[in-house]
Design a protein around this nucleic acid. Structure first.
Lengths: 336, 336
DNA sequence: ATGAAAGCGCTAACAG
DNA sequence: CTGTTAGCGCTTTCAT
């Protein structure tokens, strides 16, 4: 004997399937007699009835499923965020469909289609570029969308860390240690996150009374170790900073490898500050000083936000607080 | 304009929806004229047609969804495996529903129920303990299940790395360097993985003609940095090994922190070997010598296997090759 | 090889 | 409040 359908339940309860459906749907209580409701529910539990999701999805065009787009689960920043999302959604009876875009616009576009075909009720997207036609089209289609950490002008709902404040704290930390020549290795310019962190860097440097020097800023093609390595290497070929703030922890590791390759010590010769405080950053040698973003909270906030959008259409921007974690990679500048 | 349906494609191609369906379904090539197939496919791509899964699921009585249970996405070993699973499944039109058990039996049991209610067509489980009633019940129910890296006696389908061979390579590497006192910090005994690695360690040590010394083996309560730290600390309190093989890379990091805390250098005083070669292990200082398991391949193999089980009921055990990656954390033992 | 038609399980709109 | 009916998009059987 296979799984019971709502027809079976209706027959057992002596009512019409439509009535059984109403009795079983929590949102429609009051549309059936208490007595009927009771009888149907009793029959359902007795038969071990579990509503078939496929039928329900097809009819309601709802799947209780959220598409989650991230650049790459292999980047250690994302797993904690994804966990936050998953747990937040599941507590509300939703599931996450997770997909990696590898920062490829084509792949992102294709994945949006695949997930749309699954009738996702909404999307949480952490992979968007500032100019992103696929996401823009999704927003146009009135699909609920929450952007995470990478924002776009047109979006109405987002969750991000307060990177500007974090960057200021990082710069002030270095200035307080006595640094006067501070470099910044940014991520790719296509991302809003890069812009925010870079603008805050320039602002904080100016506020500290240091000379603005474009030569102290270099762009890594991706938020990855090797690209960070190349970018910082180019920077060191033309300048001699006593400290560098990396666009994120992966780039910071790239800075480490450059210093090691050139026989420079960290923090004695050059201090390094990262961004994100991803897992294991504290176990690097030296332990990385970095701006910690609340990765798990970002995930749960994104989950909560998308659910609110689906329920009431409410949408807002949330900025979550960060904190500077001072470890062993920063110290006073060398005496010249 | 909303999403195109197969009706739209059929109309555009001038054929009946049924024919369009046949032309689009890869399994049914030969049931339509090459010309028809071409025309339908052309119309489909032109319209950007993506089959609606709810309709398909309802009709085929399949959800094209696989439940994936892992201990914790926060452990850097798992993201690459999960990526392999996701990509492997998606290429075949399946999606993964990922859930973290945090190694809690209760949570695992509950998650299995949640995912079963979603009509998953099968499960890929990387969180099973040797004695695991929830997974055992799932196996009993004839649900297709593939176990990953952690095996059980009763399972018929599994994917794992060839840990025994890897462990032998690690031991031989150390013996070749001249080490005669080699320690092993294992993971928890509840996992088959731990057993396999430990048994292979003892075997390889014996095969090298070294004395078996139970005092050189210590168990970490979890595959985590802090537990690895505590376990290795206990071990060093009673023995003075010149090398240690950690149950995995997280435990290896715990060994690093113990050595650092005691003023011992790696590899000059004590060599350390890890297991898994998780991301960033190569960027630790010293770069970790470790047994690399093909994380991505494990994921894709698991995806392939579960799809085969669903399709033909075929099931088998796969053991994937590993390789020792020699980096900077191993060297000759100190001269006494 | 293709067209026609039925139906998977469910719920929303409409009557009564 | 409940029965009736229709149909979501797709695949598959049955004709032709």
């Amino acid at each position: 004997m296979s799984k019971p359908t709502i027809q079976d339940v209706a027959r057992a309860a002596g009512v019409h399937p439509g009535t059984a459906s109403r009795a079983l749907n929590p949102g429609l209580t009051g549309r059936t007699t208490p007595e009927t409701t009771r009888r149907v529910r009793e029959a359902a539990t007795r038969l071990g009835y579990v509503p078939d999701q496929s039928g329900r999805n097809l009819r309601t065009r709802r799947s209780h499923t959220i598409g989650v787009l991230i650049p790459d689960l292999g980047n250690p920043v994302f797993p904690p965020i994804v966990r936050g999302i998953e747990d937040g959604l599941r507590d509300a009876g939703y599931e996450a469909l997770i997909a990696n875009t590898d920062d490829s616009p084509e792949r992102e576009d294709q994945l949006i289609r695949v997930l749309t075909a699954r009738n996702c009720d909404g999307f949480i997207i952490a992979s968007s570029r500032r100019d992103d036609p696929a996401v823009a089209a999704l927003l146009d289609s009135k699909m609920p969308v929450v952007l995470v950490n990478r924002l776009m002008d047109t979006v109405t709902a987002s969750v991000a860390s307060d990177d500007a404040t974090g960057m200021r704290a990082a710069v002030n930390h270095l200035v307080g240690l006595g640094h006067r020549t501070i470099a910044h290795v940014t991520g790719p310019n296509t991302l809003s996150m890069t812009q925010v962190r870079r603008a805050a860097f320039e602002e904080a440097v100016a506020a500290a009374g240091l000379a603005a020097d474009p030569g102290l800023i270099e762009t890594a093609a991706r938020y990855a170790v090797d690209e960070g390595h190349h970018a910082f290497s180019r920077l060191l070929d033309r300048r001699a900073p006593t400290a560098v703030i990396a666009g994120n922890d992966m780039i910071a590791i790239g800075c480490y490898t450059v210093l090691r390759g050139r026989g420079l010590r960290c923090p004695e010769d050059v201090s390094v500050v990262g961004f994100n405080d991803m897992p294991l950053s504290g176990f690097l040698d030296p332990a990385l000083t970095t701006v910690a973003i609340p990765q798990n909270d970002i995930g749960t906030a994104a989950a909560q936000l998308i659910l609110e959008m689906i329920a009431d259409g409410r949408s807002l921007h949330r900025l979550l607080p960060v904190s500077l974690v001072v470890r062993g990679s920063t110290g006073p500048p060398p005496v010249r």
